[in-house]
Computed example of a mutant assay.
Amino acid sequence: MFWKKKKLTYELQQSLQLNTPLQDMSFTVFDTETTGFAIGANDRMIEIGAVQVEGFHVTDRVFQTFVNPSREIPSVISKLTTIQQSQVDTAPMPLPAIEEYFAFIEKNKSAGWVGHHVSFDEMVIKKELGRQKCTFEMPTSFDTMHLIRYLDPTGEQQDLGDYAKLFGTETFERHRALGDALTTAYVFTALLKKLDRQGVKTLADLLRIKNGGAHKFVPLS
Rank of each mutant, 00 (worst) to 15 (best):
Y150K: 07
P96I: 04
E54F: 10
I209F: 01
K194I: 14
E106Y: 06
V51Q: 01
Q23A: 09
F136S: 04
E122C: 11
F56Q: 09
T35W: 06
F188T: 03
D31N: 04
L192K: 01
F27P: 08
T59V: 05
T82C: 11
P139T: 03
G115T: 08
H57S: 12
P69L: 08
F2D: 12
A38T: 08
Q84I: 06
F217I: 15
L182D: 00
S141Y: 10
P94I: 04
H215D: 13
T35E: 07
W3H: 13
G130K: 03
L203V: 07
R208L: 15
A111V: 04
D196M: 08
A97R: 01
T184F: 01
A185H: 06
T90C: 08
E137H: 14
T32K: 10
I105T: 03
G212S: 02
L182A: 00
L178G: 00
I105D: 02
V118W: 01
K201I: 11
F56L: 10
A91P: 00
S75A: 15
G179A: 00
L160S: 02
I98T: 11
M138T: 13
R149C: 12
R176A: 04
A181E: 05
A177D: 03
T184G: 01
A190W: 01
P219M: 04
I209D: 05
F63D: 03
A50S: 03
K193R: 15
E122F: 03
F102G: 08
T65K: 10
A111E: 05
F167N: 09
G199T: 12
Q84P: 00
D152W: 09
F104V: 04
D43K: 02
K5M: 14
N19I: 09
T140G: 05
T59Y: 00
G199A: 10
E99R: 15
I77N: 00
R44Y: 02
E106A: 11
S141M: 11
A41V: 13
K109P: 02
T34K: 05
H215Q: 12
R197A: 15
F102H: 11
S110D: 04
L8A: 05
W3R: 14
Q64G: 02
M45L: 09
T81I: 03
K79Y: 11
P94N: 05
S221E: 15
S70F: 12
K210Y: 09
K7M: 15
A164R: 00
L207P: 02
L12N: 02
F37P: 07
F167R: 01
M45N: 11
L207T: 06
S86F: 14
Q132H: 15
T35Y: 04
E99M: 13
V62N: 07
Q64A: 06
G179K: 00
G155E: 02
T144E: 06
T35S: 04
F172A: 06
P219D: 02
K5R: 15
T81Y: 01
V53F: 01
F167L: 11
P69N: 10
K109H: 13
S110N: 09
R44W: 03
T28P: 08
T189A: 02
F102A: 06
F136H: 08
L8Q: 05
A214Q: 14
Q158L: 14
Y150D: 08
